[in-house]
Amino acid sequence: MKLNDEQIERYGRNIILKEVGGSGQERLLESKVLIIGAGGLGSPAALYLAAAGVGTIGIVDGDRVDLSNLQRQIIHFTGDVGERKTESAKEKIEFLNPDVRVKTYDEIATSNNILDIIHDYDFIVDGTDNFPAKFLINDACVMSGRPFSHAGILMFYGQTITVLPHESACFRCLFLGPPPPGSVPSCREAGILGGVAGLFGTIQAVEALKYILGTGGLLAGRLLTVDTLTMSFREIKVKKNPRCPVCGENPAITSLVDYEQEACNLKI
């Protein structure tokens, strides 16, 4: 493909970067990124990926926009309350950048549909808000060799890591399985500062862009934790676990598991 005049102007600030240039921009326009969850993390991720000119963005979400989402889910506006999140996100992305083709999946990711959905994408952003989904995404991505960015946020805190299946530590190398139901509060119970979601969703978008461009150092094998209350950033080096139940030498988990969602996380 060749950039047209409008694209040269739109993506000029990208193209100026040595790590991008014209060829990198063309690569972005040909790339496909899937965002699972059009919420606090997925909103900024989707907007930055769209603005950067990622050619195909997939959005998975089975929810509708609620008034209480708007404090952090910046892709949805007041007039969208009651609309499907996938449609609301698609509309904003297309307003922002008509170069982007948006594919919507108006459903919750489960063991039945996730492999088919992620199959078409180069990189996956986990923007979900519950442990069952995070383990499902990890396992599906490892089993199908799809790189992804994990992030989890609560109150003023968050963590993020990028997983390159079979190359770097996966989420299960760090955490064997979901915590017991009720042991960890959800954002609904404990609260979340909107900007913290923005910070982490933006990190996820930048990881996706660097992966597509093949540049820089990914957060692979490094868990970044941030306490925004003191604005302390900490990096924990993590190795692949040879006994990991998904990506280890003798994996015990060879098919996808749908863990039960905690009652407070159930979608109504």
């Binding site: 950039l3 040269i8 102007e9 000029g12 193209i15 100026i16 240039g21 014209g22 060829s23």
Partner: peptide, 14 residues
């Protein structure tokens, strides 16, 4: 600026 540089850079890339 900076579109002039962007255009020169794209030409040089080719």
């Amino acid at each position: 600026c900076p579109l002039n540089f962007v255009r020169a850079k794209l030409a040089l890339e080719e």
